[in-house]
Design a protein around this nucleic acid. Structure first.
Length: 179
DNA sequence: CAATAGATCATCT
DNA sequence: GATGATCTATTGC
């Protein structure tokens, strides 16, 4: 994907991300669940209180990775959206492992089933070895990239409220790929 | 299968 | 000092 792909409102980019392939190194998976986080109007978003050292990349140019640490043990991957200066991002909540599955099992030693490898925000970062060191890295130049399938199968999109938050918990900004 | 507790730390109040 | 864009193991049906 080019930078232009990300230079739009977070909700649009979130929908567009479904069905795309997330690639990091030798591991890759199909994006099947995302959430949109808006700018200063969204109390649930990290960008709500304006620029801080942690969230400054959300306000930077689109097409970059925002990786943050949460709950003392997990890291989550976001795509920065909107033109530079505006906040907005897409949280990648789940992918369907495609390539490098052996590597993913190695990184997530306790996991036995493929469906549990990357079926959550913290799981997929572990499966793809995405850490805070990649915060601010480009999604256009890598090392993390997003690609379109040459022959993208048709699918539906389910819209639901976001998960795991306490503020704005009823906003329909979660998008799930269905069949 | 559903509900609950524990792990564990960066960030903000 | 509390909380959080979570995961896993364990307990109880």
């Amino acid at each position: 994907m080019t930078q232009d792909f990300y230079s739009h409102p977070a909700t649009d980019v979130a929908r567009a991300c479904l069905g795309k392939i997330l690639v990091h190194g030798k591991t890759a998976g199909r994006i099947v669940e995302v959430e949109a986080y808006l700018g200063v109007d969204d109390m649930a978003a990290h960008s709500y209180r304006g620029v801080t050292p942690r969230n400054k990349v959300i306000f930077g140019p689109p097409g970059h990775a925002y990786v943050y640490f949460i709950y003392g043990m997990h890291e989550c991957l976001n795509f920065v959206c909107e033109p530079e200066g505006q906040a907005g991002c897409v949280l990648i909540r789940a992918i369907e492992p495609l390539t490098g599955i052996e590597t993913m099992f190695k990184r997530r030693a306790k996991t036995k089933r493929v469906r549990d490898l990357a079926s959550g925000p913290g799981k997929l970062t572990q499966a793809l070895a995405i850490t805070r060191k990649l915060n601010g890295s480009s999604l256009v130049d890598g090392p993390i990239t997003v690609r379109r399938l040459f022959d993208e199968p048709a699918f539906k999109i389910d819209v639901t409220p976001r998960i795991g938050i306490t503020k704005c918990a009823d906003w329909p900004l979660r998008f799930v790929l269905v069949k």
